[in-house]
Simulated scan of single mutants.
Amino acid sequence: MSSYTIRSMTTEDQDEVTSLIYHSTNAWYQSHARPPIFTGDVSVASVFCDVYQALDPGCCVLAQCDETGAIAGSCFYHPRPSHMSLGIMNVHPNHFGGGVARKLLDFVIAVAEKEDQPVRLVSSAVNLDSFSLYNRAGFVPRMTFQDMYLEVPPEGIQRGIPPQRLDRVRQAAREDLDAIVALEEELHHIRRPDDYRHFLENQSGLWHMSVIENDTGSIDGFLASVFHPGSNMLGPGAMRTEEDAAALIYFELQHHAGRTPVWLVPVEANQLVQQLYSWGARNCELHFSQVRGDWKKPQGIVMPTFMPETS
């Protein structure tokens, strides 16, 4: 059994961590007869290091093999005012079964406990190894989401009927930040203002964000999205109703014409799911929202994402 040193990631580690994310993620999916998540050059996975270092510099913990010096595992984590979020975790296939993931998880839990914060994550319902890891550590599945995707034609969505309230959707502006943060706190009971400031400022050019207004000019929902060769997703988002969610998803999908974005919606939002099917959306996986510690049931529609995993 190998031994490991747990330490923080440095700038010099980023290329090796990028390679770890790329190869370990693809290895797991391919070993379960599924297509690889990442295609093209290894550098496409650099988006995780780039975005997470911009949002949370220094918040990536590594497990370094004492015998070889190689990085055996990595885990990003995201301290927020209301909670700690566990981000993407990867273990090199050569070190599967060596307890690396549990060492990384224990580190993040210890950081959260020191701050008296709950820990939140979104994990695959297909990967029973990761489910068991989190479940044994005290995480409780709270919500189930279906991962959906749509090959959006270059000319935009052609199938089905456009949603109601689409005329209420517009691109978000920096002036919407306080309203976005307040709405998520009301509906989702968490706070992460720096995330939304990062999206709205969009210095990297990766992000797009929209809001839906009501008759008073207040917002009833918001939805962000990211486009990068390593991640093309809708989310995060929060909306008061399924109708609001449908309008925002449609608007963001049109922004991704010619691409194939993925997004997560609550399985119980059947009216919304059926409308997404009518546009040609399909399912590709299921995920659980899990929480270790205090949790309050969200209202409305919540749409988590893997870029960034801060909810």
Rank of each mutant, 00 (worst) to 15 (best):
Met1Asp: 11
Ser2Gly: 00
Tyr4Asn: 04
Thr5Ala: 10
Ser8Met: 10
Met9Trp: 00
Tyr22Thr: 04
Ser24Pro: 03
Ser24Asp: 02
Gln30Met: 13
Ala33Val: 08
Ala33Arg: 13
Arg34Glu: 14
Ile37Thr: 13
Phe38Met: 06
Phe38Asn: 06
Asp41Gln: 13
Val44Met: 07
Phe48Cys: 06
Gln53Pro: 05
Leu55Gly: 02
Gly58Tyr: 06
Val61Glu: 04
Gln64Gly: 11
Gln64Tyr: 08
Asp66Thr: 08
Asp66Arg: 11
Glu67Gln: 09
Thr68Pro: 08
Thr68Leu: 11
Thr68Val: 12
Gly69Trp: 01
Ser74Trp: 09
His78Ile: 01
Pro79His: 07
Arg80Leu: 15
Pro81Val: 10
Pro81Leu: 09
Ser85Thr: 05
Leu86Ile: 15
Gly87Cys: 02
Ile88Val: 11
Val91Leu: 04
Val91Gly: 00
Gly99Asn: 07
Val100Tyr: 00
Leu104Pro: 10
Leu104Val: 08
Leu104Phe: 10
Asp106Trp: 09
Ile109Ser: 04
Val111Pro: 08
Ala112Ile: 09
Glu115Cys: 11
Glu115Met: 15
Asp116Pro: 01
Asn127Cys: 14
Asn127Met: 14
Phe131Tyr: 15
Ser132Tyr: 09
Ala137Tyr: 12
Val140Met: 11
Pro141Ser: 14
Arg142Val: 11
Gln146Ser: 15
Asp147Pro: 06
Asp147Asn: 12
Asp147Gln: 13
Met148Arg: 14
Leu150Lys: 07
Leu150Phe: 02
Glu155Met: 10
Glu155Cys: 05
Gly156Ser: 02
Arg159His: 11
Gly160Thr: 09
Ile161Trp: 11
Ile161Phe: 12
Pro162His: 11
Gln164Trp: 08
Arg165His: 15
Leu177Trp: 05
Ala179Ser: 15
Ile180Ser: 04
Val181Gly: 04
Glu184Met: 06
Glu185Pro: 01
Leu187Val: 07
Ile190Thr: 12
Pro193Val: 02
Tyr196Thr: 05
Phe199Lys: 03
Glu201Trp: 07
Gln203Met: 15
Ser204Trp: 02
Ser210Lys: 07
Ile212Ala: 07
Glu213Lys: 08
Asn214Glu: 14
Thr216Tyr: 09
Ile219Gly: 06
Val226Glu: 06
Phe227Thr: 13
His228Val: 04
His228Lys: 07
Asn232Ile: 14
Asn232Gln: 13
Leu234Gly: 05
Gly235Val: 05
Pro236Glu: 05
Ala247Gly: 00
Leu248Ser: 04
Ile249Leu: 11
Tyr250Cys: 01
Tyr250Gly: 01
Glu252Val: 02
Leu253Met: 09
Gln254Leu: 00
Gln254Ala: 02
His255Leu: 14
His255Met: 14
His256Gln: 05
Ala257Ser: 14
Arg259Phe: 14
Thr260Arg: 15
Pro261Cys: 05
Val262Gln: 13
Leu264Pro: 06
Leu264Gln: 05
Pro266Ser: 03
Gln271Asn: 15
Leu276Lys: 02
Tyr277Glu: 09
Trp279Lys: 03
Arg282Lys: 09
Cys284Tyr: 13
Ser289Asp: 14
Gln290Asp: 03
Val291Gly: 06
Arg292Leu: 05
Gly293Arg: 10
Gly293Cys: 01
Gly300Cys: 08
Ile301Tyr: 01
Val302Arg: 11
Thr305His: 06
Phe306Ala: 12
Met307Lys: 04
Pro308Val: 01
Glu309Arg: 12
Ser311Asn: 11
